[in-house]
Design a protein around this nucleic acid. Structure first.
Lengths: 275, 275
DNA sequence: GGCAGCGATACCCCGCCGGTATCGATACCT
DNA sequence: AGGTATCGATACCGGCGGGGTATCGCTGCC
């Protein structure tokens, strides 16, 4: 299997439309059809079921889509890291608006290390995992169980309990503490995008970063359950109420396996030092 | 980057010899040289330094070798899993001679599950991780910290302390307990192969499976430090002495990320049930 | 029934992969 | 020092296959 075939297949599997996929790939539709057919023939499995009106994934296709995305990410990562191995620098991915105080401490402590290299910050709206997988970042701060750590090496940094973030006008805002049962069915519970950028159907506003979320909450349009850190610098008009039985959130530092970089190892060691 | 280029590069990087690599790949040497040169040109980095007598890896080359191996493994795995998605079956990799009683319990318990599929056992001499990475197995039992779990999803099953395995004739065999300092410098300490199958230089016999190791110990040619499990069914003439400060060994069940198979999920759940 | 949208098929062209022949450099041997 | 063997690079050529255009066949919809 060549990466070209994988790129083509992933494009079709995501678009579920040969024409659009060919467009996205910058090639014509016939060679795309042919390449997919060849791939299916060589694998001996149907990846797509096509009528002339609709394309859909078979079970095998769904599997290959998941694995293919991961492989293409790994290839992109390998390429990027190989290219930049001579100019040692470190890209740290973190959530914008997240635990900035932890981040500041970490960057300061690392900068004081002997042999520290320049650290670039990649602030993501959400899903700090993706840039790690495709090589845009070398290390990431992420939050279990919100972020999946599949396929990454991880060290936990700290664990926090969660709070419901509500407008002060909300009926539950006065409570001393809440339970998940109180909030889980709230129609205003905000929805975050899936890793692929789409939203699961359901009630609640769609948000994609913290600023937006806080605004929505302040406007009374949303509520959310979040780890403790976000309480620092909470907007006027928002209340944080502990949710006693919410799953604990663990802030972890994560990096791709096979990372041989001394800089990554140093940064991780420093981070573990004050966990 | 195409997988063809990666295959070619990995071959050269492993052989450190264009002629032999071309041989192994079943192509002639000139196109191989050309492909590597093109790859280097496109990446903008030298991967290999070559004199007409010696080929060696640059830092970038070493990085790409590690990443390339992982990618090629992932591609092989994706291919194999996609091909066999229609015939549900499960391949479980485990160390031959290892914790057979845990294994038996696990297989029995899983077989009793509703919707259980046939489980094939892949018994490895060592390094159960590799078959997982290249798709020959779907799940593996491995032992931290001996086996690296980088890039895998993992659930711990149980933790054990370690024992020195000695011939009864050995001066230390009579001790009630030992410390790592007592054994770490023993010239008879057996050496296991690295993941690539080579041995690090040093004293001590080279072994590649448990049977062989035990024979060597019985013959007075080797000693080893191993987790508790191997005590069951220890040969006549061998002694197991606890090493109090040896790192604990954790038996874990591991599977590749993106594994969507229900069978894998069931097996893991069963395994966690009696951890 | 006509039409529009979409994937498959037919056919052609050229780029690139792989082959053979050969060169140039280097270490080794006498 | 000269000869030689080894090994990677270069030169050149032929064929396969990837990508293009034109068109077909099917399907759902006015």
């Amino acid at each position: 299997m060549e990466t070209r075939e994988l790129r083509y297949f992933v494009a079709v599997a995501e678009e579920l439309h040969f024409g659009r996929a060919a467009d996205r790939l910058g090639i014509a539709q016939p060679p795309l059809s042919r390449t997919i057919a060849q791939l299916e023939h060589r694998l001996g499995v149907a990846l797509l079921t096509r009528t002339s009106r609709k394309v859909s994934l078979t079970e095998a296709g769904a599997l290959l889509l998941a694995e293919g995305r991961a492989i293409l990410g790994a290839v992109a990562a390998a390429e990027r890291r190989t290219r930049t191995v001579d100019r040692p620098s470190l890209v740290l991915a973190a959530k914008a608006g997240g635990s900035s105080e932890l981040l500041a401490k970490l960057l300061d402590a690392y900068a004081a290390e002997p042999g520290a290299v320049a650290v670039d910050l990649l602030l993501c709206e959400a899903h700090t995992r993706q840039p790690l997988l495709d090589g845009r970042a070398d290390v990431a701060i992420l939050h279990e169980p919100y972020d999946s750590t599949a396929g990454l090496d991880v060290e936990p940094l700290r664990t926090e309990s969660q709070f419901a973030i509500l407008p002060t006008s909300h009926p539950l805002a006065g409570a001393a503490r809440l339970r998940m049962a109180d909030v889980i069915d709230l129609p205003e519970l905000a929805r975050w995008p899936e890793p692929d950028g789409t939203y699961l159907p359901g009630p609640g506003v769609e948000v994609h970063n913290l600023t937006q979320l806080f605004q929505m909450i302040a406007l009374g349009r949303a509520v959310a359950v979040m780890p403790e850190v976000v309480r620092t610098g909470l907007l006027e008009g928002l209340a944080a109420v502990p949710v006693v039985d919410a799953p604990k959130v663990t802030t972890v530092i994560a990096w791709p396996p096979h990372s041989r970089s001394r800089a990554v190892a140093d940064l991780v060691r420093v981070a573990m030092g004050f966990s």
